[in-house]
Design a binder for these strands. Sequence first.
DNA 1: TGACACAAACAGACTGGTCTGTATATTTCG
DNA 2: CGAAATATACAGACCAGTCTGTTTGTGTCA
Lengths: 197, 197
Amino acid sequence: MMKTRSQKSDARRRLIETAERLFYAEGIHSVGIDRIIAEAGVAKMTLYNHFSSKDDLVVAVLHYREEKFDALFQKWMKQSVEAGMSQLEAFFSALKKWFESPGFRGCMFINACVELADADHEGSKFSSSHKRRFHELLKQIITQTAGVKAADQMTPAIALLVEGAIVTAVMQQSSRSADVARDATLALVSKSPKNTT
Amino acid sequence: MMKTRSQKSDARRRLIETAERLFYAEGIHSVGIDRIIAEAGVAKMTLYNHFSSKDDLVVAVLHYREEKFDALFQKWMKQSVEAGMSQLEAFFSALKKWFESPGFRGCMFINACVELADADHEGSKFSSSHKRRFHELLKQIITQTAGVKAADQMTPAIALLVEGAIVTAVMQQSSRSADVARDATLALVSKSPKNTT
DNA sequence: TGACACAAACAGACTGGTCTGTATATTTCG
DNA sequence: CGAAATATACAGACCAGTCTGTTTGTGTCA
Protein backbone atom coordinates (compact mmCIF):
# COMPACT_ATOMS: atom_id res chain seq x y z
CA MET A 1 0.00 0.00 0.00
CA MET A 2 2.94 2.36 0.17
CA LYS A 3 1.93 5.09 2.56
CA THR A 4 4.76 5.04 5.01
CA ARG A 5 6.70 8.21 4.47
CA SER A 6 3.86 9.67 2.47
CA GLN A 7 2.44 9.33 -0.95
CA LYS A 8 3.35 12.50 -2.76
CA SER A 9 4.72 14.36 0.20
CA ASP A 10 2.65 14.68 3.30
CA ALA A 11 4.82 17.54 4.53
CA ARG A 12 4.08 19.66 1.49
CA ARG A 13 0.36 19.22 1.94
CA ARG A 14 0.55 20.08 5.62
CA LEU A 15 2.60 23.19 4.85
CA ILE A 16 0.07 24.45 2.32
CA GLU A 17 -2.93 23.71 4.49
CA THR A 18 -1.35 25.34 7.53
CA ALA A 19 -0.18 28.37 5.59
CA GLU A 20 -3.60 28.79 4.01
CA ARG A 21 -5.29 28.75 7.38
CA LEU A 22 -2.86 31.23 8.93
CA PHE A 23 -2.59 33.56 5.92
CA TYR A 24 -6.34 33.76 5.64
CA ALA A 25 -6.93 34.33 9.32
CA GLU A 26 -4.09 36.72 10.09
CA GLY A 27 -2.64 37.98 6.83
CA ILE A 28 0.37 37.07 4.78
CA HIS A 29 2.80 39.57 6.25
CA SER A 30 1.75 38.91 9.82
CA VAL A 31 2.53 35.20 9.65
CA GLY A 32 6.19 34.20 9.62
CA ILE A 33 7.83 31.11 8.27
CA ASP A 34 8.71 29.89 11.75
CA ARG A 35 5.08 29.98 12.78
CA ILE A 36 4.03 27.98 9.72
CA ILE A 37 6.59 25.23 10.15
CA ALA A 38 5.88 24.98 13.87
CA GLU A 39 2.13 24.54 13.34
CA ALA A 40 2.65 22.22 10.38
CA GLY A 41 5.14 20.17 12.40
CA VAL A 42 7.74 20.35 9.67
CA ALA A 43 11.40 21.30 9.56
CA LYS A 44 12.37 24.59 8.01
CA MET A 45 14.59 22.91 5.43
CA THR A 46 11.65 20.78 4.35
CA LEU A 47 9.75 23.94 3.52
CA TYR A 48 12.65 25.28 1.50
CA ASN A 49 13.02 21.95 -0.27
CA HIS A 50 9.44 22.23 -1.50
CA PHE A 51 9.23 25.99 -2.04
CA SER A 52 11.96 28.34 -3.15
CA SER A 53 10.75 31.20 -0.99
CA LYS A 54 7.85 32.47 1.07
CA ASP A 55 6.46 34.17 -2.03
CA ASP A 56 6.52 30.81 -3.77
CA LEU A 57 4.58 29.28 -0.89
CA VAL A 58 2.08 32.13 -1.09
CA VAL A 59 1.38 31.36 -4.74
CA ALA A 60 1.00 27.65 -3.99
CA VAL A 61 -1.42 28.49 -1.21
CA LEU A 62 -3.52 30.62 -3.54
CA HIS A 63 -3.73 27.78 -6.07
CA TYR A 64 -4.79 25.40 -3.31
CA ARG A 65 -7.29 27.93 -2.00
CA GLU A 66 -8.94 28.25 -5.39
CA GLU A 67 -9.51 24.50 -5.62
CA LYS A 68 -10.76 24.26 -2.07
CA PHE A 69 -13.03 27.29 -2.33
CA ASP A 70 -14.52 26.23 -5.64
CA ALA A 71 -15.34 22.78 -4.29
CA LEU A 72 -16.91 24.21 -1.14
CA PHE A 73 -18.93 26.77 -3.04
CA GLN A 74 -20.22 24.16 -5.48
CA LYS A 75 -21.21 21.96 -2.56
CA TRP A 76 -23.17 24.79 -0.95
CA MET A 77 -24.87 25.64 -4.20
CA LYS A 78 -25.81 22.03 -4.81
CA GLN A 79 -27.46 21.83 -1.40
CA SER A 80 -29.61 24.85 -2.21
CA VAL A 81 -30.48 23.62 -5.67
CA GLU A 82 -31.58 20.32 -4.20
CA ALA A 83 -33.72 22.28 -1.76
CA GLY A 84 -35.55 23.71 -4.73
CA MET A 85 -33.80 26.98 -5.51
CA SER A 86 -32.91 28.21 -8.96
CA GLN A 87 -29.22 28.28 -9.82
CA LEU A 88 -29.14 32.02 -9.29
CA GLU A 89 -30.85 31.91 -5.92
CA ALA A 90 -28.59 29.06 -4.93
CA PHE A 91 -25.57 31.18 -5.79
CA PHE A 92 -26.57 33.89 -3.34
CA SER A 93 -27.55 31.33 -0.76
CA ALA A 94 -24.05 29.89 -1.00
CA LEU A 95 -22.61 33.39 -0.74
CA LYS A 96 -24.50 33.95 2.48
CA LYS A 97 -23.41 30.59 3.86
CA TRP A 98 -19.84 31.61 3.12
CA PHE A 99 -20.23 34.97 4.89
CA GLU A 100 -21.64 33.19 7.92
CA SER A 101 -19.02 30.45 8.04
CA PRO A 102 -16.75 30.60 11.10
CA GLY A 103 -13.59 32.62 10.59
CA PHE A 104 -14.90 34.37 7.49
CA ARG A 105 -12.54 37.18 6.64
CA GLY A 106 -13.44 38.06 3.08
CA CYS A 107 -12.01 36.88 -0.19
CA MET A 108 -8.48 35.57 0.11
CA PHE A 109 -7.66 36.74 -3.41
CA ILE A 110 -8.78 40.30 -2.77
CA ASN A 111 -6.88 40.22 0.50
CA ALA A 112 -3.77 38.90 -1.24
CA CYS A 113 -3.85 41.71 -3.82
CA VAL A 114 -4.22 44.27 -1.05
CA GLU A 115 -1.45 42.81 1.07
CA LEU A 116 1.02 42.09 -1.68
CA ALA A 117 0.53 45.67 -2.93
CA ASP A 118 2.49 44.83 -6.07
CA ALA A 119 0.33 44.13 -9.13
CA ASP A 120 3.25 42.30 -10.75
CA HIS A 121 3.60 39.79 -7.93
CA GLU A 122 2.65 36.29 -9.08
CA GLY A 123 0.13 36.11 -6.27
CA SER A 124 -1.58 39.28 -7.46
CA LYS A 125 -1.69 38.08 -11.04
CA PHE A 126 -3.15 34.74 -10.02
CA SER A 127 -5.71 36.46 -7.81
CA SER A 128 -6.74 38.67 -10.67
CA SER A 129 -7.19 35.65 -12.94
CA HIS A 130 -9.14 33.86 -10.24
CA LYS A 131 -11.64 36.70 -10.20
CA ARG A 132 -12.10 36.38 -13.95
CA ARG A 133 -12.78 32.67 -13.54
CA PHE A 134 -15.19 33.30 -10.69
CA HIS A 135 -17.10 35.82 -12.77
CA GLU A 136 -17.17 33.35 -15.64
CA LEU A 137 -18.88 30.85 -13.35
CA LEU A 138 -21.31 33.57 -12.35
CA LYS A 139 -22.04 34.26 -15.99
CA GLN A 140 -22.87 30.63 -16.63
CA ILE A 141 -25.28 30.67 -13.73
CA ILE A 142 -26.97 33.83 -14.97
CA THR A 143 -27.24 32.29 -18.41
CA GLN A 144 -29.25 29.43 -16.98
CA THR A 145 -31.72 31.85 -15.41
CA ALA A 146 -31.82 34.71 -17.88
CA GLY A 147 -30.44 33.45 -21.16
CA VAL A 148 -27.18 34.05 -22.97
CA LYS A 149 -27.93 37.56 -24.12
CA ALA A 150 -28.99 38.88 -20.75
CA ALA A 151 -26.04 37.16 -19.08
CA ASP A 152 -23.57 38.82 -21.45
CA GLN A 153 -25.16 42.12 -20.68
CA MET A 154 -25.69 41.87 -16.95
CA THR A 155 -22.87 39.77 -15.59
CA PRO A 156 -20.42 42.65 -15.07
CA ALA A 157 -22.91 44.56 -12.93
CA ILE A 158 -23.91 41.50 -10.95
CA ALA A 159 -20.25 40.70 -10.41
CA LEU A 160 -19.88 44.15 -8.85
CA LEU A 161 -22.79 43.40 -6.53
CA VAL A 162 -21.11 40.15 -5.50
CA GLU A 163 -17.69 41.71 -4.90
CA GLY A 164 -19.31 44.58 -3.05
CA ALA A 165 -21.23 42.13 -0.92
CA ILE A 166 -18.02 40.32 0.03
CA VAL A 167 -16.21 43.50 1.03
CA THR A 168 -19.22 44.86 2.87
CA ALA A 169 -19.68 41.61 4.78
CA VAL A 170 -16.14 42.04 6.08
CA MET A 171 -16.38 45.75 6.85
CA GLN A 172 -19.76 45.58 8.56
CA GLN A 173 -19.30 42.11 10.04
CA SER A 174 -22.65 41.04 8.68
CA SER A 175 -24.05 38.68 6.07
CA ARG A 176 -26.96 40.94 5.15
CA SER A 177 -25.08 42.17 2.09
CA ALA A 178 -25.68 38.76 0.50
CA ASP A 179 -29.43 39.38 0.64
CA VAL A 180 -29.05 42.90 -0.69
CA ALA A 181 -26.99 41.61 -3.59
CA ARG A 182 -29.46 38.83 -4.30
CA ASP A 183 -32.46 41.16 -4.33
CA ALA A 184 -30.73 43.69 -6.56
CA THR A 185 -29.66 40.91 -8.91
CA LEU A 186 -33.17 39.54 -9.16
CA ALA A 187 -34.46 43.05 -9.81
CA LEU A 188 -31.98 43.51 -12.63
CA VAL A 189 -32.71 40.10 -14.10
CA SER A 190 -36.49 40.46 -13.95
CA LYS A 191 -36.12 43.76 -15.76
CA SER A 192 -34.16 42.13 -18.53
CA PRO A 193 -35.81 42.25 -21.97
CA LYS A 194 -35.42 38.51 -22.32
CA ASN A 195 -35.59 36.51 -19.14
CA THR A 196 -36.73 33.26 -20.59
CA THR A 197 -34.53 30.23 -20.99
CA MET B 1 3.52 86.50 12.14
CA MET B 2 4.65 83.58 14.19
CA LYS B 3 5.54 80.77 11.87
CA THR B 4 9.05 80.09 12.95
CA ARG B 5 9.03 76.71 14.58
CA SER B 6 5.57 76.01 13.23
CA GLN B 7 2.08 76.75 14.30
CA LYS B 8 0.69 73.51 15.62
CA SER B 9 3.56 71.23 14.79
CA ASP B 10 4.95 70.97 11.32
CA ALA B 11 6.64 67.66 12.14
CA ARG B 12 3.37 66.01 13.07
CA ARG B 13 1.80 67.06 9.79
CA ARG B 14 4.78 65.80 7.81
CA LEU B 15 4.69 62.46 9.64
CA ILE B 16 1.02 61.93 8.87
CA GLU B 17 1.32 62.98 5.24
CA THR B 18 4.37 60.79 4.68
CA ALA B 19 2.85 57.80 6.45
CA GLU B 20 -0.37 58.17 4.51
CA ARG B 21 1.49 58.17 1.22
CA LEU B 22 3.62 55.15 2.12
CA PHE B 23 0.88 53.12 3.81
CA TYR B 24 -1.43 53.61 0.86
CA ALA B 25 1.17 52.80 -1.76
CA GLU B 26 2.91 49.88 -0.07
CA GLY B 27 0.78 48.72 2.82
CA ILE B 28 0.90 49.26 6.56
CA HIS B 29 2.98 46.25 7.46
CA SER B 30 5.46 46.74 4.67
CA VAL B 31 6.43 50.24 5.76
CA GLY B 32 8.58 50.55 8.86
CA ILE B 33 8.91 53.40 11.30
CA ASP B 34 12.47 54.11 10.19
CA ARG B 35 11.32 54.58 6.62
CA ILE B 36 8.60 57.02 7.64
CA ILE B 37 10.84 59.21 9.79
CA ALA B 38 13.56 59.21 7.14
CA GLU B 39 11.18 60.36 4.39
CA ALA B 40 9.44 62.83 6.67
CA GLY B 41 12.81 64.22 7.78
CA VAL B 42 11.91 63.86 11.43
CA ALA B 43 13.64 62.34 14.44
CA LYS B 44 12.34 59.11 15.84
CA MET B 45 11.65 60.62 19.23
CA THR B 46 9.56 63.31 17.58
CA LEU B 47 7.31 60.60 16.21
CA TYR B 48 6.96 58.98 19.61
CA ASN B 49 6.28 62.35 21.22
CA HIS B 50 3.31 62.81 18.92
CA PHE B 51 2.08 59.21 18.70
CA SER B 52 2.22 56.53 21.34
CA SER B 53 2.84 53.72 18.87
CA LYS B 54 2.75 52.78 15.21
CA ASP B 55 -0.86 51.69 15.64
CA ASP B 56 -1.64 55.13 17.00
CA LEU B 57 -0.06 56.70 13.93
CA VAL B 58 -2.09 54.38 11.71
CA VAL B 59 -5.32 55.61 13.26
CA ALA B 60 -4.25 59.25 12.89
CA VAL B 61 -3.41 58.59 9.25
CA LEU B 62 -6.87 57.11 8.63
CA HIS B 63 -8.53 60.18 10.16
CA TYR B 64 -6.43 62.43 7.96
CA ARG B 65 -7.18 60.27 4.92
CA GLU B 66 -10.90 60.59 5.43
CA GLU B 67 -10.73 64.37 5.47
CA LYS B 68 -8.45 64.50 2.46
CA PHE B 69 -10.44 61.98 0.46
CA ASP B 70 -13.78 63.61 1.20
CA ALA B 71 -12.48 66.99 0.09
CA LEU B 72 -11.02 65.57 -3.10
CA PHE B 73 -14.15 63.61 -3.94
CA GLN B 74 -16.37 66.64 -3.36
CA LYS B 75 -14.11 68.69 -5.61
CA TRP B 76 -14.36 66.12 -8.39
CA MET B 77 -18.13 65.90 -8.04
CA LYS B 78 -18.46 69.67 -8.11
CA GLN B 79 -16.53 69.84 -11.37
CA SER B 80 -18.90 67.35 -12.98
CA VAL B 81 -22.00 69.05 -11.63
CA GLU B 82 -20.78 72.34 -13.03
CA ALA B 83 -20.30 70.56 -16.35
CA GLY B 84 -24.01 69.78 -16.33
CA MET B 85 -24.28 66.34 -14.77
CA SER B 86 -26.84 65.31 -12.19
CA GLN B 87 -25.55 64.65 -8.70
CA LEU B 88 -25.76 60.92 -9.29
CA GLU B 89 -23.89 61.02 -12.58
CA ALA B 90 -21.34 63.30 -11.01
CA PHE B 91 -20.79 60.76 -8.25
CA PHE B 92 -19.82 58.06 -10.71
CA SER B 93 -17.77 60.48 -12.73
CA ALA B 94 -15.80 61.28 -9.57
CA LEU B 95 -15.46 57.58 -8.88
CA LYS B 96 -13.94 57.07 -12.31
CA LYS B 97 -11.58 60.02 -11.85
CA TRP B 98 -10.45 58.44 -8.61
CA PHE B 99 -9.82 55.06 -10.25
CA GLU B 100 -7.77 56.76 -12.93
CA SER B 101 -5.75 58.94 -10.59
CA PRO B 102 -2.05 58.08 -10.48
CA GLY B 103 -1.10 55.60 -7.80
CA PHE B 104 -4.68 54.41 -7.28
CA ARG B 105 -4.62 51.32 -5.14
CA GLY B 106 -8.19 50.97 -3.96
CA CYS B 107 -9.87 52.19 -0.83
CA MET B 108 -7.46 52.80 2.02
CA PHE B 109 -10.12 51.84 4.56
CA ILE B 110 -10.86 48.50 2.93
CA ASN B 111 -7.12 47.93 2.67
CA ALA B 112 -6.63 48.81 6.32
CA CYS B 113 -9.30 46.34 7.44
CA VAL B 114 -7.70 43.63 5.34
CA GLU B 115 -4.19 44.35 6.55
CA LEU B 116 -4.98 44.88 10.20
CA ALA B 117 -6.94 41.59 10.15
CA ASP B 118 -8.28 42.37 13.61
CA ALA B 119 -11.85 43.73 13.64
CA ASP B 120 -11.25 45.16 17.12
CA HIS B 121 -8.29 47.28 16.06
CA GLU B 122 -9.11 50.98 16.27
CA GLY B 123 -8.14 51.34 12.63
CA SER B 124 -10.62 48.65 11.59
CA LYS B 125 -13.39 50.21 13.63
CA PHE B 126 -12.74 53.64 12.18
CA SER B 127 -12.62 52.20 8.67
CA SER B 128 -15.94 50.50 9.22
CA SER B 129 -17.48 53.75 10.42
CA HIS B 130 -16.00 55.60 7.47
CA LYS B 131 -17.87 53.27 5.13
CA ARG B 132 -21.10 54.02 6.90
CA ARG B 133 -20.46 57.76 6.47
CA PHE B 134 -19.57 57.30 2.82
CA HIS B 135 -22.76 55.37 2.18
CA GLU B 136 -24.72 58.08 3.98
CA LEU B 137 -23.30 60.60 1.54
CA LEU B 138 -24.29 58.30 -1.28
CA LYS B 139 -27.80 58.09 0.10
CA GLN B 140 -28.13 61.87 0.14
CA ILE B 141 -27.06 61.98 -3.49
CA ILE B 142 -29.56 59.31 -4.47
CA THR B 143 -32.25 61.19 -2.59
CA GLN B 144 -31.67 64.23 -4.78
CA THR B 145 -32.16 62.15 -7.92
CA ALA B 146 -34.77 59.62 -6.90
CA GLY B 147 -36.46 60.91 -3.77
CA VAL B 148 -36.27 59.89 -0.14
CA LYS B 149 -38.27 56.72 -0.43
CA ALA B 150 -36.34 55.29 -3.33
CA ALA B 151 -33.05 56.28 -1.69
CA ASP B 152 -33.94 54.44 1.51
CA GLN B 153 -34.76 51.42 -0.54
CA MET B 154 -31.94 51.39 -3.08
CA THR B 155 -28.92 52.80 -1.32
CA PRO B 156 -27.69 49.49 0.11
CA ALA B 157 -27.63 47.87 -3.32
CA ILE B 158 -25.99 50.86 -4.96
CA ALA B 159 -23.42 50.92 -2.19
CA LEU B 160 -22.56 47.33 -3.10
CA LEU B 161 -22.12 48.37 -6.72
CA VAL B 162 -19.76 51.14 -5.62
CA GLU B 163 -17.70 48.94 -3.29
CA GLY B 164 -17.57 46.25 -5.94
CA ALA B 165 -16.42 48.78 -8.49
CA ILE B 166 -13.57 49.89 -6.20
CA VAL B 167 -12.36 46.35 -5.60
CA THR B 168 -12.72 45.39 -9.24
CA ALA B 169 -10.82 48.48 -10.37
CA VAL B 170 -7.90 47.28 -8.25
CA MET B 171 -8.08 43.62 -9.23
CA GLN B 172 -8.48 44.24 -12.97
CA GLN B 173 -6.39 47.41 -13.07
CA SER B 174 -9.12 49.19 -14.96
CA SER B 175 -11.59 52.00 -14.40
CA ARG B 176 -14.34 50.41 -16.49
CA SER B 177 -16.06 49.16 -13.35
CA ALA B 178 -17.06 52.76 -12.62
CA ASP B 179 -19.09 52.81 -15.83
CA VAL B 180 -20.63 49.43 -15.11
CA ALA B 181 -21.65 50.60 -11.64
CA ARG B 182 -23.07 53.84 -13.01
CA ASP B 183 -25.15 52.09 -15.68
CA ALA B 184 -26.49 49.52 -13.24
CA THR B 185 -27.35 52.27 -10.77
CA LEU B 186 -29.21 54.27 -13.38
CA ALA B 187 -31.07 51.13 -14.41
CA LEU B 188 -32.10 50.50 -10.82
CA VAL B 189 -33.09 54.12 -10.26
CA SER B 190 -35.11 54.42 -13.47
CA LYS B 191 -37.00 51.29 -12.50
CA SER B 192 -37.90 52.77 -9.16
CA PRO B 193 -41.65 53.27 -8.60
CA LYS B 194 -41.09 56.88 -7.68
CA ASN B 195 -38.20 58.61 -9.40
CA THR B 196 -39.45 62.15 -9.18
CA THR B 197 -38.07 64.72 -6.79
C1' DT C 1 18.05 95.10 24.04
C1' DG C 2 20.27 91.06 26.13
C1' DA C 3 20.16 86.98 29.25
C1' DC C 4 17.82 82.96 30.34
C1' DA C 5 14.63 79.16 30.55
C1' DC C 6 11.80 76.17 28.19
C1' DA C 7 9.79 73.35 24.70
C1' DA C 8 10.34 71.07 20.51
C1' DA C 9 12.94 68.79 17.35
C1' DC C 10 17.25 66.83 16.37
C1' DA C 11 20.88 62.80 15.97
C1' DG C 12 21.96 58.41 16.81
C1' DA C 13 23.07 54.52 19.65
C1' DC C 14 20.85 50.63 21.67
C1' DT C 15 17.59 46.66 23.25
C1' DG C 16 15.33 42.68 22.41
C1' DG C 17 12.98 40.56 19.24
C1' DT C 18 11.49 38.88 14.50
C1' DC C 19 12.18 38.18 9.71
C1' DT C 20 13.71 35.21 5.53
C1' DG C 21 16.82 32.17 4.09
C1' DT C 22 21.16 29.03 4.54
C1' DA C 23 24.32 25.57 6.30
C1' DT C 24 25.34 21.37 8.68
C1' DA C 25 24.96 17.23 10.64
C1' DT C 26 21.75 13.47 12.00
C1' DT C 27 17.95 10.28 11.62
C1' DT C 28 14.46 7.53 9.48
C1' DC C 29 12.87 4.31 6.30
C1' DG C 30 12.13 2.12 1.76
C1' DC D 1 22.59 2.79 -0.01
C1' DG D 2 19.88 6.87 -1.03
C1' DA D 3 16.19 9.91 -0.50
C1' DA D 4 13.59 12.73 2.47
C1' DA D 5 12.82 14.71 6.63
C1' DT D 6 14.74 15.99 10.94
C1' DA D 7 16.94 19.38 14.55
C1' DT D 8 19.65 23.16 15.28
C1' DA D 9 22.51 26.90 14.68
C1' DC D 10 23.48 30.79 12.14
C1' DA D 11 23.69 35.11 9.10
C1' DG D 12 22.19 39.50 8.16
C1' DA D 13 18.61 42.47 7.77
C1' DC D 14 14.82 44.69 9.75
C1' DC D 15 11.31 45.63 13.37
C1' DA D 16 9.13 48.78 17.15
C1' DG D 17 10.28 51.28 20.73
C1' DT D 18 13.60 53.53 24.42
C1' DC D 19 17.18 56.44 25.98
C1' DT D 20 20.68 60.06 26.19
C1' DG D 21 22.28 64.14 25.00
C1' DT D 22 22.40 68.24 21.77
C1' DT D 23 20.66 71.97 19.06
C1' DT D 24 17.50 75.56 18.00
C1' DG D 25 14.05 78.83 18.16
C1' DT D 26 11.03 81.66 21.11
C1' DG D 27 8.67 84.02 24.69
C1' DT D 28 9.67 86.22 29.16
C1' DC D 29 11.64 89.29 32.08
C1' DA D 30 14.96 92.43 33.58
